[in-house]
Design a protein around this nucleic acid. Sequence first.
DNA 1: ATTCAGTATACTGTATACAGAAGTGAAGGG
DNA 2: CCCTTCACTTCTGTATACAGTATACTGAAT
Lengths: 218, 218
Amino acid sequence: MSIQRQTLREQIETEIMDRVGAGEFRMGDNINEVSLSEELGVSRTPLREALISLSQQGVITRVSGKGFRWAPIGANDFTEAVQIIAALEGLALRLTPASELARIGRELAAQAHEFTASVSSAADIHDHDDAFHALLASGSPNKRLAETVASYKLALRRYERLYVGNADLMERAAAEHEAIAEALLANDLPAAIAALEANWLNSVPRIINALKAKVPAV
Amino acid sequence: MSIQRQTLREQIETEIMDRVGAGEFRMGDNINEVSLSEELGVSRTPLREALISLSQQGVITRVSGKGFRWAPIGANDFTEAVQIIAALEGLALRLTPASELARIGRELAAQAHEFTASVSSAADIHDHDDAFHALLASGSPNKRLAETVASYKLALRRYERLYVGNADLMERAAAEHEAIAEALLANDLPAAIAALEANWLNSVPRIINALKAKVPAV
DNA sequence: ATTCAGTATACTGTATACAGAAGTGAAGGG
DNA sequence: CCCTTCACTTCTGTATACAGTATACTGAAT
């Protein structure tokens, strides 16, 4: 194994995204570069570079002259992102060779079953969901697409946090996951894509309701 | 009218993208920050920030420890990007309210007609194509989608340069544009999306052939 | 009491300086 | 003659310093 050198900027990026995923920052607040850099123990230069990089992913907003701020969380933003990622994952399935689809369906089903069997922590839930979607897109030869999807998925973390703890919502999502796997197992690509899009679009009202409950006046 | 303040980084970004679109840099070469910053008359800091920003768009690659380089141009990269943007523009059409589709079709047809009437310079051709695609996505309420599509479109500029000067290729593309407009005018959304995807996917072999002709061993 | 001007402060945007890694080439050993 | 090694150069990655803008505050005038 070769030691992988990592630049400060990259470390900062992952650190920030981890914290965002953990809900550590209040979305909508603006970012004080000095205090954040001190908190992370780095200088402003790599921090700014990391923020610029992340601002392309939609988690951070930049206002000219006023610096960066945590992108406000909102129903609109979530809906737009979901529409895009649903289309992209559908594309990934369409690009997957037919011979691969059944195998992926099989693995997805196994994974979904394994998950429902063992109740898990919040982190486990996220990891499982990420694995599910990564597996879903794994058959597509379009690497750039995979990267884009992963990036969107990461940006949606801050919304998915709202799921955690709500058994009902999670149960429905799990059922939808199984529906996708079954459609793939049956080699019914259109049905799988439809189920996939339904899974994403169903999540919109669920999350929005959770948002309204937690954050008044979104 | 309010004076629009623009930060150096933003100016650098557009400047670089313009030059990339003009084919000023050899793709695959690595970027010397010092010489480029001197050439642009700025310091390395805003230049680096611009490069980081652009590297998210696929025009610039970053190798840890070795700095930035112009993303190598290649058939694979182009194909992958086209698949994605085709899906996203199709999504934009699907999200457009039905009432808007006919209007957009009308405007597209008008624009296409106006274009074929007046033969134009290379820059005009790019502008027209951009306007066409911007108009195509203008009916979708998903602003983030519009931004993403625009960003991809910009990244594909360096490939589209290969079109310029080839009357045959351009003629075929123009015909496809008109087919899209007609389908929209007829309120036939699926046909429009199919024509749109065909337009994009047809461009792949065209561009790849042009690539092979100009750049040996891609 | 309110509003506006003026000033002070805090923070971003940019430039410069420094440190360390990657590349380069010549000298020496096999 | 080829390969290795070591010094040297070049360039990136990071830190710090400087400049300019936005914001908050104070005080005076209406």
